[in-house]
């Protein structure tokens, strides 16, 4: 694990600074979610301050992806609400997500294979298009289209995809496709960026690149980042704060150093509390 060095001091100070900001970028209040009889989330509360990189970790099946899906409006919670900026939702409207300034990536790639890389990234701006069908057919591209083009060009360059801008995503390696998805999410300059395992299946070098991009999303473009990741080394390195989920409940929430030393967290991962969970090697090594 090349990325397992823990940059705790820096993360901690920045986290403290970010936490001072008054209105949270995202608040999850008392969210519960069940499918049929299976409970995925129970009374989860989260507050993510503006400008934070906030990670959610937990064993497989802890409800991390469910949480992201609730925040992005794919699941409707049974109880609780989600606050994005200053707006409160019992169920986030997925179709309006992009206009709310929220973008996300998916655990399993969700690219548009019929569009090239640049086309996929440009789709991140789809919500801004207000031209009617007739205008699109007979009109010439206006100023807005020019602006969109320059945004796409800039983000492609930044995520280092320019050379493959006209390739079909299906022809690219997995790690590169993950980057395309990040570029699609970033191109609209989201205020809140949700990343569901952005580094899954990547090698160490690819992960290091991804860490760089995620940091830049915050530092350069001011996005608040909520991140699900299994690589605990990366999480400790990159996060201002970390929440730990286990069996659909939040069992810890704090700066990386606090979470790392939390008894409950160690128990959850090492299987003291319930021995049917898989122990991620990363944490077993880190702890």
């Amino acid at each position: 694990m090349s990325t397992s060095t823990i940059a705790a001091p820096r993360a901690a100070t920045e986290g403290a600074r970010a936490a001072d900001a008054s209105a949270p970028a995202l608040e999850v209040a008392g969210v519960s979610l069940a499918f049929g009889g299976v409970t995925a989330l129970t009374g989860v509360d989260l507050k993510v301050a503006e400008g934070e990189i906030f990670s959610v970790i937990g064993p497989n099946g802890a409800g991390k992806s469910s949480l992201i899906n609730v925040v992005s409006g794919l699941y409707r919670p049974n109880a609780g609400c989600v606050l994005i900026g200053r707006k409160s939702f019992a169920a986030v409207p997925a179709a309006a997500l992009a206009s709310l300034g929220v973008a996300r990536t998916f655990q399993n790639l969700a690219l548009f294979n019929g569009l090239d890389v640049a086309g996929n990234v440009a789709m991140g701006l789809a919500h801004q298009d207000r031209t009617g069908l007739f205008g699109q057919i007979v009109g010439s591209p206006g100023a807005r289209a020019e602006e969109a083009r320059s945004l796409v060009t800039e983000i492609l360059a930044f995520i280092e995809l320019t050379a493959i801008a006209d390739r079909a995503p299906g022809t690219l390696p997995y790690g590169v496709r993950k980057r395309v998805e990040l570029a699609r999410a970033l191109v609209s300059r989201p205020k809140l960026l949700l990343l569901d395992e952005p580094m899954a299946g990547m090698n160490a070098a690819e992960k290091a690149d991804m860490v760089r991009f995620v940091r830049a999303a915050r530092d350069r473009w001011g996005a608040t980042v909520v991140l699900i990741e299994h690589d605990i080394g990366v999480v400790m390195e990159i996060s201002d704060r970390i929440a730990v989920l286990d069996h659909g409940r939040k069992i810890a929430d704090g700066a990386p150093a606090e979470v790392r030393d939390d008894k409950g967290v160690i128990d959850a991962y090492l299987g003291v509390a319930h021995d049917d969970d898989e122990i991620p090697l990363e944490l077993a090594g880190a702890a």
């Binding site: 794919l74 309006a96 997500l97 996300r104 998916f106 789709m123 919500h127 699609r184």
Partner: peptide, 11 residues
Amino acid sequence: DNETAARIVGV
């Protein structure tokens, strides 16, 4: 190609 992703980006 991906209806869910399309909805999320605001299509």
